Amino acid sequence: MTLKTSSLTTDRIKLPFYFNANKMFEEFNQLKPDGFEYYSVIPLRSPAHLVDPSLPFPPPADDYADGSWTDWLDTQELQNSPYLLSVVDEFRKHTKVTLVRLLRLAAGAEVQEHTDPTLGLEIDRSVIRLTIPITHNDQVNFYLNKTVVPMQPGECWYLKLTDPHAITNHSTTERVNMTIDMIPNDWIKNTIRDSQ
């Protein structure tokens, strides 16, 4: 059965996966650099030529949106993080996982409202991005269409990021999320649909 995008009735869906945020945070702490600007990224899965410079740069593509323009490899950071690797493996046993990152937002920082035009199921050639919060603070808010998404550590969410979204961190600690991008297939589409 193929997902009909019109069957989605909300811009945010909590999926039936739960991960150990404490283990994720322990491994994040081993990877994070000491100094960083307001926002930093630790790549865990990246285009193959960025992970292994001996590989050729991929040829130009007509459309980069769906992640099929290159091969993707685990970075050394992911290979050295057994629990984070198990989280990625949970999804790649079902579909092709492309970009995976740890996203770190400094205390007191904000991400201005924006849209990501290729991160929604309603787009023909798109990537599905799942978000797993690793840390939580009541003063950290992820806004989607001007309303807060009540994400908790270890939960896994599909968010319609083609819609306007923003993040505020009014706390005194950093906020850390993991994002996992994947090529849409019937398994993940139906998981999202059935989780509404």
Rank of each mutant, 00 (worst) to 15 (best):
Q79S: 08
M182H: 04
D163F: 12
A21S: 13
T147N: 15
S86Y: 02
P117V: 01
S81W: 00
Q152I: 00
G35M: 13
I42E: 00
R125P: 12
T2H: 15
T5I: 03
S7D: 12
T179C: 14
I132L: 07
L119G: 04
D186L: 03
Y83C: 01
R125N: 13
L159T: 10
F91L: 03
V51N: 06
V97P: 14
S54D: 06
A166L: 02
L50R: 15
F17S: 13
T9Y: 08
A107F: 05
T179M: 06
L105R: 06
T131N: 15
P82G: 02
T2V: 15
S171W: 00
A65P: 06
W69Q: 09
Q30E: 15
F28T: 12
F36T: 08
N145G: 09
P60W: 05
W72Y: 05
L8Y: 00
R125C: 02
D66V: 00
S81C: 01
K160Y: 05
T162E: 10
F91A: 04
E113T: 04
D116P: 03
I42H: 00
N80F: 01
I128W: 03
I134T: 05
I42A: 00
Q76A: 12
D62Y: 07
T179G: 11
R175P: 07
D194Q: 11
L105Q: 07
H49E: 07
S40D: 14
L144A: 10
Q139R: 15
R101Y: 10
R193V: 06
V41L: 07
T10E: 08
R101A: 05
F28C: 06
Y83H: 04
W72A: 05
V100L: 05
G120H: 01
V97Q: 07
P58G: 03
G120L: 02
K160L: 10
R101W: 01
M182W: 01
F36W: 12
T162L: 07
E110K: 15
S81F: 04
P59L: 02
M151S: 08
W157R: 03
H170P: 04
A61H: 05
D11N: 14
D186K: 12
L55F: 01
V176R: 00
P58H: 02
A107Q: 08
A166S: 08
T118P: 11
Y18D: 15
L102W: 01
V140R: 15
F57S: 14
P58L: 01
D138V: 13
I188C: 08
F19W: 06
Y143F: 14
E90T: 09
K189Y: 08
E26F: 08
T70L: 06
D52T: 13
G154Y: 08
I188F: 03
Y64V: 02
N145S: 15
V88E: 09
M178I: 12
L3T: 09
L105S: 06
R101K: 11
R129W: 02
T118Y: 13
A109E: 11
Y39N: 07
D52F: 04
N145H: 12
K4Q: 04
V97Y: 03
V176I: 09
Y64K: 05
N141V: 09
L121F: 00
N29F: 10
